[in-house]
């Protein structure tokens, strides 16, 4: 499940600024795709695992993050072994493993807000063209990370409620209330962001692009 993967700590990686970690990750991604030798890539994977180990991630969190990835990597490895050759398959396996481990090390040691600050800074030149609002993009990313676990919890709640009514296998009974509830909370979230004075939209404006709604909520 998506959510913030950040784990508090004081490792060397924790102390690095977010931009530096993201830059190194970006550069590592390029280098890894240039290098073809499986032996070198295997060394890189071991090094990435060692870097991740310095963060001292909890084993449970690590298992949760890596199980799904391991299945995908195994499938890619098998496909390459069948349709290409063993050398290509191993190179691909080590290359992707290195990237995943490095990315995990970065996300486990970087707060979402620090990462979003970098995103905002990177997008700022585009902001001048009027095509992108960096603050809005960064808020949208944060909201996605924040609310995916909530939507998943809501999904489980509705699934259990429908199962109790004998509608366990009915996708409509599951999807319709989930969409309705999500949209309803989206409206409330927008109001909450407005209420907290988010000025990403325009200097005196509101996140949802409306400074106050005509009409109201009756309660």
């Amino acid at each position: 499940m998506i959510g913030s993967l950040y784990i508090g700590g004081d490792s060397l990686l924790h102390r690095q600024p977010a931009w530096r970690k993201l830059l190194v990750l970006f550069a590592a991604g390029i280098v890894l795709f240039v290098v073809q030798a499986p032996e070198i890539l295997a060394g890189a994977a071991v090094a990435a695992a060692a870097i991740l180990a310095t963060v001292r991630p909890p084993l449970r969190a690590l298992r949760r993050q890596l199980t799904g990835v391991a299945i995908i990597l195994a499938a890619i490895f098998a496909a390459n072994a069948v349709f290409a050759d063993w050398g290509t398959a191993f190179a691909m396996l080590f290359r992707l493993s290195t990237l995943v481990l490095l990315a995990l090390a970065v996300t486990m040691t970087t707060r979402t807000s620090d990462m979003l600050e970098v995103v905002e800074r990177v997008l700022q030149p585009l902001e001048r063209t009027g095509l992108v609002n960096a603050a809005r993009v960064s808020l949208a990313v944060s909201l996605a990370i924040r609310f995916v676990p909530e939507i998943f919890a809501r999904y489980r709640e509705i699934r259990d409620a429908q199962a109790a009514r004998g509608l366990a296998g009915n996708p409509v009974a599951l999807i319709v209330p989930l969409v309705v509830r999500t949209l309803k909370s989206a409206e409330e979230i927008a109001a909450a962001i407005d209420a907290r004075g988010f000025e990403g939209a325009h200097p005196s404006g509101s996140a949802s692009g409306r400074t106050g709604r005509q009409g109201g909520t009756a309660s």
Binding site: S113, S142, R146, E150
Partner: peptide
């Protein structure tokens, strides 16, 4: 639940 907008 709808007022907290950041993961941490």
């Amino acid at each position: 639940e709808n007022q907290i907008v950041f993961p941490i």
